[in-house]
Amino acid sequence: MLKGFFLSQFVLADEIAGTTQRASAILRQIDDLWRGNSSHSQFSMKIKTAHYTRTLALEGWSLGTQKTLVRILSPKKEQGVSSLKSGKHLYTYLPRTDRTIRLTSSMMMGSWMGSHFTNDDLVQESRREEDYDIDISFEGERDGQGIIEFTLMPKEDAAVVWGKVQLVVLAESLLPVKEVYYDEDLKQARTMLFSELKILGGKIRPATMRVVPSDKPEEYTEITYQLLELDIPLADSFFSINQLKHR
């Protein structure tokens, strides 16, 4: 999801197949709306936990679904710290020590840059069409807005921890409003809220995404886009470990 956001491909980037033809068709439209082969973005990340509140400024690049590079611009102390996702590998470059560390599987569930995202959130492919059976569970007016609610049930063999995912999009623009993750007993586990519609990368999109863990409702991580450019020329070599250092 997070990766999707960075890629400006959002949640539904790859969602093509669905059990219901119509659901799939709509998801495909949404997919088209957000599709970009490459991207460059600037965004801020505000993290609030019981112990700290911090705001980061970041810059990101992506190419296809396999390559992503994110760099911290501020605060000063962490300036230059970069994360490179290449395929399923995740590397972190630390300018203070001038070293690049490849994260092992045991670090995957660790927090990404102190946020409510895990490193794993970044690496996981959003293979939703493979992992979920997609259905439209509600369509119509809610809170004065025309919306479509998709219910995504994980397939039997899919390597996802969730019991159910619900996605609410605006019926008219197909822009996401809310995504709720449930555990296997169908209790809420975390919620993502999308807001602040504005023109980004030439189209209207929600510029802000907030993630709230359900067991700690007072905490959140909020990402806000300042800049998004799509389909810019980027070479494969841009996403190498060497580049990670030199940028």
């Binding site: 045991s106 921890v161 019991g163 993750y181 449930y182 555990d183 296997e184 586990a189």
Partner: peptide
């Protein structure tokens, strides 16, 4: 092997 084991919680 070593690994991480996760549920929704």
């Amino acid at each position: 092997g070593q690994g991480m084991f996760a549920s929704a919680h």
